Amino acid sequence: MKKIVTLGEIMLRFSVEAGERLVQADKLSMHYGGAEANVAISLSNFGHDVYFVSKVPENPLGKAVERHLKSYDVHTNYLIKGGERLGSYYLETGVGQRNSQVTYDRKYSSFSMLRPDEIDFDEVFSGVELFHVTGITPALSPSLKELTLLALKKAKEKGILTSFDFNYRAKLWSQQEAGDTFKTLLPFVDICSFGELDAVYILGLDQADPSLSKEDRLRYYYSKMVELYPNIQYISSTFRTIISASTNTLQGNYFTGGELYQSEIFQIDHIVDRVGGGDAFAAGILHGIIENKPSQELITFATAASVLKHTVHGDCNVFSVDEVAAFANNGPGKIVR
């Protein structure tokens, strides 16, 4: 069992029923979620000893968050209480050719007001093997930019493997601001998740020859990234083709040691809930790395974990290692007896 820490905001999600617009809705379903919390829950389901660092208000919503995390055996020792409100967002689920839409209500949340001096990283990182954070966290406030950088530096000082998922959100900040911030963080990152568009528009890397295949373009960008930041040992991303809001294809990519490994192309047909699919993939990658899985097995597992997440409501994945492995090996649609 590996000790893992994730840092980020957990929010209350309100979702309309499929086929309704938010302006029409007279009832909403509730779930709790957030990128780093979703990764924490997946890794806990995979059998790891996971701690989630965040800040929530001292009110019934904050208590509900704690209960939610504990229900998946995620430790809440470092869940700080304070501030005025829990961030939230509203999800309007896409149908057919209509995309899903997210409306945030997270300004001045408890987490966005978190200060670096509120966390004792010597205590938080004691005995930890892996630390994970995403680009959403530094987007939320100037103090969280400082906190994210401090956390990554502290982790590296203690010899902890670090993971950073770009997770760029255009509704939170500009590409320029994200790029400037990420460039200060990347020297302290071992595991990184980003795609071709991130390489070009966030990092400003020179574009690959457009005549190349998408696989060769990805090899180009990932090789450039390792040249710029030789500390980065593992890079991952997915290729997603959107046929409709309920039918996608998904293929995982994993780059290490100068080699690109890819999963098979999975067809996801009928998507129940796409939110959190990327976090399930990230957790699968991290699980494979810390368990020293062979690269091809690792990327197949991570992609299968993401595919399964699309079949359940809510932000977080609820499948075990054995369930993901069985799906990856046996394929979809069978009755497991």
Results as ranks from 00 to 15, higher is better:
Thr184Trp: 00
Gly252Gln: 04
Asn59Trp: 03
Glu177His: 14
Gly195Gln: 08
Asn231Gly: 15
Gln267Trp: 10
Ile271Pro: 04
Ala139Pro: 02
Glu58Phe: 03
Ile265Cys: 10
Glu177Ile: 11
Ser88Ile: 00
Ala139Gln: 05
Leu308Asp: 02
Leu79Ser: 09
Pro142Trp: 03
Tyr51His: 15
Gly314Ala: 10
Phe266Asn: 02
Asp180Met: 06
Ala25Met: 08
Pro230His: 13
Phe239Gln: 15
Gln296Glu: 08
Pro294Lys: 09
Ile10Ala: 07
Ser246Arg: 12
His68Met: 10
Ser15Asn: 04
Leu205Thr: 01
Ala304Ser: 04
Leu250Ser: 07
Thr137Phe: 02
Tyr234Gln: 12
Ser126Tyr: 14
Val124Arg: 07
Ser29Gly: 09
Ala304Tyr: 00
Asn167His: 09
Phe255Gly: 12
Lys153Trp: 10
Ala151Glu: 06
Gly87Met: 02
Ala37Thr: 06
Leu7Ile: 11
Leu147Gln: 00
Lys334Ala: 02
Pro210Ala: 14
Arg169Gly: 11
Asp269Asn: 15
Ile299Pro: 01
Phe319Tyr: 08
Thr103Arg: 05
Met11Lys: 06
Ser244Tyr: 06
Phe319Thr: 05
Leu286Asn: 03
Gly34Cys: 06
Tyr221Pro: 08
Lys171Val: 12
Ala25Lys: 09
Gly277Tyr: 00
Phe239Ile: 15
Leu22Asn: 04
Asp117His: 14
Pro60Ile: 06
Phe164Glu: 06
Ile242Glu: 07
Leu286Phe: 00
Met225Trp: 01
Leu298Ala: 04
Pro187Ile: 09
Val272Asn: 08
Ala178Val: 11
Gly179Ala: 00
His31Ser: 15
Tyr261Leu: 14
Gly83Gln: 00
Ala40His: 01
Ile202Pro: 00
Met30Arg: 15
Asp122Ile: 11
Val275Ala: 05
Tyr261Ala: 14
Lys153Arg: 15
Val275Ile: 09
Gly33Pro: 02
Tyr234His: 13
Lys158Val: 14
Tyr51Gln: 14
Ile290Glu: 04
Val272Ile: 14
Leu218Cys: 13
Glu157Lys: 15
